[in-house]
Amino acid sequence: MAVVVWIVEATWTACVDAARTHTPAHADIVLLHVTPADIPGAAHGAFAGLLGRGHPERDPGTRLEHLAAASAQQLLQAAADRLDRPCTRMERTGRIEREIIVAAQGAELLIVARDGDRSRLGPRSLGPASRFVVDHAPCPVLLVWPEPAPGLKTMPPPPPRHPHPPHHR
């Protein structure tokens, strides 16, 4: 069984715990972290636009790239340690939601954590990237709460009922 676990700074422990709990011991697990490509790119552009191209060693975009890579490696190491099983660690850079979908191609399960408003039940508990991933995943998705789920009283009320159903002609 091939399982991809999306590792994100704020929610990775819940995803790793779900992988340990809901996948067989022999599963091929990939811990996946995606660094957005737009952050270092914006810094490169700002540096070139404001300060010119005379001192590439001062380009903050390069430093951000190195920091992001080191952070991703540390996060993936912590996730692998918590998983405590053989796994593959994968780092990608690009549009987060699209990189997740590409990496999940051929997987039998994708594990994703809710990353939006986690104070109540409902669709807003998914941020834009995770909503895209859930809607476009090429495999089954296990969607987990990073902390205990809120109570049923947080669910939005049902839509109002109309006294008379509309007539169709």
Rank of each mutant, 00 (worst) to 15 (best):
P56E: 02
Q74Y: 15
R63P: 05
P56S: 05
C87I: 01
P86E: 10
E57L: 05
P56T: 11
L76I: 09
E57I: 00
Q77N: 13
L83Q: 03
R85D: 02
P86Q: 10
A79N: 02
Q73R: 14
P86N: 04
L83A: 06
L67Y: 12
S71Q: 10
G61I: 01
Q73F: 09
Q73W: 10
L75A: 13
L75G: 00
L64W: 10
Q74R: 10
Q77T: 12
T88Y: 00
R82Y: 07
E65H: 09
S71G: 14
A80C: 08
R63F: 15
R82S: 07
P60Q: 03
R85Y: 11
D81H: 14
G61D: 04
D81C: 01
R58K: 15
A72T: 06
A72R: 05
E57S: 05
P60L: 08
Q73S: 10
R85L: 04
A69F: 10
A72Y: 02
G61K: 02
D81S: 12
P60C: 11
E65N: 13
H66F: 10
A80T: 00
R58L: 15
T88G: 03
L64H: 14
R58Q: 13
H66S: 15
P60A: 10
S71C: 07
P86V: 09
D59M: 06
R58D: 13
A68Q: 12
A68M: 15
A68R: 04
L76R: 04
L76F: 07
Q74F: 15
A69H: 12
L83E: 01
P60N: 10
L67E: 13
A80D: 01
P86G: 09
L75T: 06
R85Q: 12
L75S: 06
L75I: 06
L67P: 04
L67K: 05
R85H: 14
T62F: 01
T88F: 08
L76T: 01
A72D: 01
R63W: 14
H66A: 12
E57M: 03
R82T: 04
E65D: 11
R85M: 11
A72G: 07
S71D: 13
T62E: 13
G61P: 03
R58G: 03
D59L: 05
A80N: 00
P60D: 06
D84L: 05
A69R: 06
